[in-house]
């Protein structure tokens, strides 16, 4: 008889519990509109958190993702508005913006990676610094206000967020796609193994012929690309970017990763858990919206408690081993 593995099953059990609470709280919870809304909203944090799973598994941390999302949003909007004068096709403009977005994400990740590995500054400090830089840059670009996407492009682009395929919004499909690719990459490839090894013990990784710096830098680049993907589906939702965009995304992403069972000190990561973690966080916000029993303003408090309990249970599971 296989024992119930709390470490693996824990997040899934928690998801079921939260879901049942949702059903009990309000009839509207189970409506298809609400459920697809939950999935679509969780996809932003979820996609960012999948990138964070790689970074954390390899022993790093990236605090800059929220600011990076705001910065990339701002760049995309400025670029699309500027291209309006030269290019006629809205679709071409959007595709160019998407390519630019991915490029900025990858380069931003590369910078984080190189500063941590080559300049040997702690990841916490590096990304705390870039977090401030991107946040400030987007505020500067918007001149302290809001950058708005041209309405003509916005109308075409909004399809990316609001469009539906097989009954599910596009963002959910993107989330699913990123999750599957992330799962394969982390669990079935040499790169994934190397992430585990680097996060577990860098010295052993080095003596196992693993290029530790390259692996770590790659995780930050992957994180940057994930942020860019999340941004690509986020921009059409509001059609604007400001200094307030993506605030606290980094903490929500890290929370989703930790709730999912990935170990914060590195060496062990779970993509499936991260997806579940992102769903749990969104569900809690949604349920608090649907009930009067607990104020919606306490959303952050409830999320905080969940993270602490999740880590506590994780530790218990470690100790038994």
């Amino acid at each position: 008889m296989p024992k119930l593995d709390l470490k693996t099953a824990g997040p899934f059990i928690a998801l079921v519990v939260v879901f049942i609470i949702g059903v009990l709280v309000n009839d509207a919870f189970l409506s298809s509109g609400n459920l697809s809304n939950i999935l679509a909203r969780s996809s932003f944090i979820g996609i960012v958190a999948i990138g964070a799973t790689f970074v954390i598994t390899a022993g790093g941390i990236d605090l800059s993702v929220g600011s990076m999302a705001a910065f990339i949003s701002g760049c995309m909007i400025l670029l699309m508005n500027a291209l309006m004068d030269t290019i006629d096709s809205m679709v071409v403009i959007i595709i160019l913006a998407i390519i630019a977005s991915a490029g900025i994400g990858a380069v931003a990740g590369l910078i984080n990676g190189l500063l941590t590995t080559k300049a040997k500054i702690e990841a916490f400090i590096v990304t705390l610094g870039t977090m401030g830089i991107y946040r400030s840059l987007v505020t500067y670009m918007a001149d302290g206000g809001t950058l708005s996407l041209n309405f003509t492009i916005g109308d075409v682009y909004s399809e990316v967020y609001y469009g539906v395929f097989l009954g599910l919004p596009y963002p959910v499909w993107v989330f699913l796609g990123v999750a599957v690719i992330g799962y394969v990459l982390l669990n079935m490839t040499v790169f994934g193994r190397h992430c585990f090894a680097v996060g577990s013990n860098e010295s052993v990784a080095r003596y196992s012929a693993i290029n530790v710096d390259r692996v770590k830098t790659a995780t930050y680049m992957l994180q940057g690309v994930c942020v860019s993907i999340a941004t690509i589906i986020y921009v059409p939702r509001l059609g604007s970017a400001s200094g307030q965009t993506g605030i606290l995304w980094e903490l929500e992403a890290i929370a989703a990763v930790i709730i999912g069972g990935t170990v914060l000190k590195g060496g062990y990561g779970r993509i499936g858990g991260t997806v579940v973690g992102a769903l749990i966080l969104t569900l809690i916000g949604n349920i608090l919206n649907l009930t009067d029993a607990v104020s919606n303003y306490l959303n952050g408090a409830v999320q905080g408690i969940i993270v602490i309990v999740a880590v506590y249970l994780q530790r218990g599971a470690w100790r038994r081993d």
Binding site: T189, V190, R193, A197, N201, V204, A205, R206, Y207, G267
Partner: peptide, 27 residues
């Protein structure tokens, strides 16, 4: 300190130095 990942399994440790031999894209 540098040879084995003590908290990882035996197979994981065994193949870490020679993964290139048993993988194209997937292991």
């Amino acid at each position: 300190g540098s040879g084995l990942l003590l908290e990882k399994g035996l197979i994981f440790n065994f193949s870490l130095f020679s993964l290139h031999k048993i993988s194209r894209f997937l292991i």
